[in-house]
Amino acid sequence: MEKEFDPKIVGFFCNWCTAAAADLAGTSRIQYPANVRPIRVMCSGSVDASYVIKALLEGADGVLIGGCHPNDCHYVNGNYKARRRVALLKSILTTLDLDPDRVWLRWISAAEGVRFAKVVRQMTEEIKEKGPNPMGKSTQT
C-alpha cells in the first residue's frame, strides 16, 4: 500500500513572535502536525527570496514565513517589507512554473499559540491536497 503523502514544510519564523508562539503552543499543549521544520530568523523581513526558492527547489512542499502583526515589528517595518517581498516573489514563482500557493506569509504574534497551531494545521492540510512539490527529489526517485 502506498504511504500517505506527508508534506515537508520549511518555516522561517521571526524570533520575536512566531518562534515564541510555537513555544507558547507547546507549553500550553496545543498540538499541531509535525510537518514544519523551523528556522529562526531575526525578522520576517530578513527572509531572502533565494531561501524560499532554494527550499522549493530542494523539494520543500511548502514554505511558511511567520512574522509579527503590522505595527508590532521589532525593526519598525520589517514585516511590511516581508509582505512586499513575498508578493513579488509569488509573481516570480509563477513565471518559474512553481506554485505560488506553496508559499505562505502569516502574522502570528507571541501571544497566539492557538493561531500558530491553526496555521500549521491548515497549511499542512492544504499542501496535502495539492500533493508533493513536483520539484521534490523524493518524488523523482
Binding site: A19, A22, D23, L24, A25, G26, T27, R29, I30, Q31, Y32, P33, A34, R37, P38, R40, A117
Partner: peptide, 20 residues
C-alpha cells in the same frame, strides 16, 4: 534550539520526535 515545547509537546504525532 527550542526543542521541548515546540516539538515534544507541540507535535501531535510522537513518532515524529526522533526525526525532528
Amino acid at each position: 534550539l527550542d526543542f521541548r515545547e515546540p516539538v515534544l509537546w507541540g507535535y501531535e504525532d510522537a513518532s515524529k520526535f526522533n526525526e525532528a
